[in-house]
Design a protein around this nucleic acid. Structure first.
Length: 357
DNA sequence: TCTGGGGTCCTAGGACCC
DNA sequence: TCTGGGGTCCTAGGACCC
């Protein structure tokens, strides 16, 4: 039987701001873009959550709920730096660390537990070390699978520490609403509700055949999760499959000089990151969101992978010109590169690059 | 109330090949 | 004149996660 921990920093970006700015401590802090720039909340301190402010909420609404909130623009380089420190603490315990984002990771500590260590003691020590070395609070959940560990860390927040003993999985999960399971979002929750399924226990009681009508091919996996079965391994090395950048404009923009400058800027950003990762892309996608919020993507693939701003811009402009009409106004513009490869560009590159221009 | 930005994975339809 | 089936690749859209 495995022992997996899920570690999750509490209100990460907001906590970092309170750490670096002592005057923000104990105060309502929201991290995110400005309301004028149509920003949303990326992180909310516990003080501001008391006002009903939540992640992903429009900043304009957050500031209406809590007019005294301190709004801070995100500082991703700083969050990345602290994330590296925290992941290093985890890796010092075991190489089996799978980061899910800057502030979250799974750790497989089965080896330590087999040798007689107890999960609770290890988790306490990790929490203490993260606090001592970074000043940040991490919540930890533990159990025999990723599902149980993740739900457990969420369960104890803030400053949580919940270890579910082997055999206790189903009892722990049963009373929870289905939306707490990984992969069950608002849409799935709504269709499950319609089928009379509200809790994880309701899920566990249904047959897979039954669930297939509602969840399609995901039924088997979701049912297994609900009864505490989940043998997905902790996988330390995850390779990136796409690189993209996008911008929402403060004001809707028609295609024109300013729009093309933004397109070039986004292409430069994507190209910079491709080059930094020593990778090239065979597919380039253009993403557009109209003023009415409908979103479309158009993609194209080339034989010879690209990694320069010029090539990416040319491909994106080619896509843009097949769809844009003079009356269109856009709120968002983005570029995604996929089909990544580390093949160097050779020979035929000359053709594709010439075609693109 | 007016909706970010970084990603992953899945599905469905069509082109194309044998 | 009408027309199979399997496989692969590509594109577009959407659900979901933090």
């Amino acid at each position: 039987v495995r022992t997996i921990l899920h570690a999750d920093l509490d209100a990460f970006y907001a906590s970092v701001e309170q750490l670096d700015h002592p005057e923000y401590r104990g105060k309502p802090v929201v991290v995110g873009g400005s309301p004028e720039g149509r920003g949303v909340v990326a992180a909310a301190s516990y003080e501001v959550r008391a006002f009903g402010v939540r992640s992903a909420m429009p900043m304009s609404r957050a500031l209406r709920l809590c007019p005294d909130a301190i709004r801070v623009s995100p500082r991703f380089p700083r969050y990345t730096e602290l994330s590296r420190q925290i992941m290093a603490i985890f890796r010092n315990l075991t190489p089996l660390v799978e980061p899910l984002s800057l502030d979250e990771a799974f750790l497989d500590i089965s080896g330590w537990v087999d040798d007689g260590a107890d999960a609770l003691g290890i988790a306490r020590e990790l929490k203490r070390e993260v606090m001592t070395k970074t000043g940040l609070v991490v919540s930890i959940g533990g159990g025999t699978s990723k599902t149980v560990a993740k739900v457990a860390s969420d369960h104890g927040k803030p400053d949580g520490l919940v270890i579910v003993p082997p055999g206790g999985e189903q009892a722990f999960l049963a009373p929870l609403p289905v939306g707490r399971l990984f992969g069950i979002g608002p849409k799935s929750e709504a269709v499950l509700q319609k089928a009379g399924i509200r809790t994880v226990n309701d899920l566990a009681k249904r047959s897979i055949r039954d669930l297939e009508r509602v969840l399609g091919s995901r039924a088997e996996f979701v049912h297994a999760m609900a009864i505490g079965k989940d043998d997905r391994p902790v996988e330390p090395a995850q390779e990136r499959k796409s690189v993209g950048a996008e911008t929402t404009f403060a004001n809707d923009l028609p295609d024109g000089a300013e729009f093309r400058r933004e397109l070039r800027r986004i292409a430069e950003e994507v190209a910079r990151r491709l080059q930094h990762g020593h990778t090239r892309a065979r597919t380039v996608a253009l993403k557009l969101r109209y003023d009415n919020f409908t979103t479309i993507t158009r993609q194209t693939s080339v034989r010879t992978p690209v990694d320069s701003a010029g090539e990416v811009t040319a491909l994106a402009v080619g896509l843009l010109e097949t769809i844009v009409t003079p009356n269109d106004r856009f709120r968002l513009l983005g570029i995604q590169c996929s089909k990544l490869t580390d093949e160097p560009a050779v020979q035929g590159a000359l053709f594709d690059a010439a075609d693109a221009r």
